[in-house]
Amino acid sequence: MEQMTDTVRVVRTGEPVKVKPRRYDALISFVLRFLMLFVTWLILSGMFDAFHVSLGVACSAFVTWLSADIFPPEVRRFRKLRSLWLLTLYVPWLVWEIAKCNIRMLFLAFDPKLNDKIAPRIVTFKTGLRNELALTFLANSITMTPGTITVSIDERGYVSVHAFDEVSAAGLPGDMEKKIKAIFEEA
């Protein structure tokens, strides 16, 4: 197998389109992240007196401010309610898919002829997704499903996946890519 290198050369035709966040995008992004951190704080601390709650507010605000550079505002994608709705539908669907694959793997694990039935291979394919967040969604969903692990993914959409056997290799990229495409509206 050929050695993989760290540098990926990307040939761009023309300048990449920089989308400037709208005025409220930054604000919404901050508020959402702050709420997420604060709810996690409340659940983990479990104390609701004034001192601990105000400590939580201060800490959440500080971390929100610190992470502003790491997570630049990109709420634009989820401004449309339809995207959010599709995302909420996607999670149970993914859990169901994971469950189905898990049960198949469980039967394989107890199979006496395990090593004859598996056919590990590396499958490569190209997706139509370009958005970094969408690619991350795809890569993580593939890895989470038992039977397939993402080996590499790049911004041109080339994905290589280590598949466990023929059944899991045949299911790639499948519905998963279509659903993520619908969420991010990259039709």
Binding site: I98, M105, A109, P120, T143, M144, P146, G147, I149, F164
Partner: peptide, 12 residues
């Protein structure tokens, strides 16, 4: 291939 099985443990 062992990693595939390890993934089974910590999801479902």
């Amino acid at each position: 291939t062992r990693l595939h099985m390890a993934g089974m443990l910590d999801t479902l």
